[in-house]
Design a protein around this nucleic acid. Structure first.
Lengths: 149, 149
DNA sequence: ATCAATATTATTGTACACGATTATTTTGCT
DNA sequence: AGCAAAATAATCGTGTACAATAATATTGAT
């Protein structure tokens, strides 16, 4: 007497698909800048907080060095950021935005903003979904750290 | 006069993080079976629909052969599925569940079900979030195929 | 001051994801 | 029948993710 699991009734699957659609959406929106979505949110975090260590960027994005180190190297190669060992603490690598990144900031904001507003989603629904998803994320975090019973 | 973009106010970022948490959650839940989340949903689809071609599986999961071919080979190596060229249409590769997969089905359903119920989420909120996310997914799909204006 | 514990980044290995291309087979048009 | 167009998988290249490990630097307790 086991209840069958139907894929289309799974919240995880809805979120899995929506995340892929967002990726696709941002791939189009960011194409003029030749940025991927993870690269874009890395820049967003740096625009917001200024120069940070790799660790600190990782905390804002929930990513570790295994993901960020190669991603940062690509951003550096494409002239968006610079990476420099901290003189104060030689373990740290400080990541800073280049003049190019700073000068293109408003253009990115404007272009992405116009693409996003093309999604026909009311402010209220946006907020409702975001609150709900954030809550699910929190519940998952609690369920993961906690033993399952 | 460009409005700044704050990462934590972005719905895409909430969904991005929630998807990663689900991945983490299922990695724990599926550890006894040595399955990843994408492998798990592939089995779910096969449990639901029976033998299908790679193309058909791809349609149920929104994945293409570039992802599925190597994933299927791993599932085959681990004894979950068999792959066979269709006799009727030599272009197709039919994917079928093995006796192992069929015999473990209820065990997987039960174990995953108990893990999921450990997430403290009311039925109503579950439905509300899922409906909202599905709607966002649909709006994104419309925004992508449609030109941005 | 010493040295074990800790912190930070980089590296390695495995597994997706997906666009683009290739190889093979089937279908549809004449 | 003959052949261009379409369909299906596989392959290749690039870019995440993340666990585990390694390498180096810092801190803290004695």
């Amino acid at each position: 007497m086991v209840k069958p699991i139907h894929l289309d009734e799974q919240l995880c699957f809805s979120i899995y698909k929506a995340q892929k659609q967002f990726n696709h959406f941002y791939a189009q929106a960011l194409a003029p800048f030749k940025l991927t979505y993870p690269q874009y949110i890395t820049l967003l975090s740096l625009y917001e907080h200024g120069t940070m260590s790799v660790k600190e960027v990782g905390q804002t994005l929930a990513l570790d060095s295994g993901t960020l180190t190669p991603l940062m190297k690509r951003l550096e190669k494409d002239g968006w950021i610079t990476r420099k060992r901290s003189a104060v603490d030689e373990r740290r690598v400080d990541v800073s935005l280049t003049a190019k990144a700073l000068s293109l900031r408003d253009e990115i904001y404007e272009h992405v903003g116009s693409c996003v507003s093309a999604i026909d989603l009311s402010h209220d629904e946006f907020e409702a979904v975001k609150t709900g998803v954030d809550n699910v994320d929190a519940k998952l975090t609690a369920a993961i750290t906690q033993p399952t019973r």
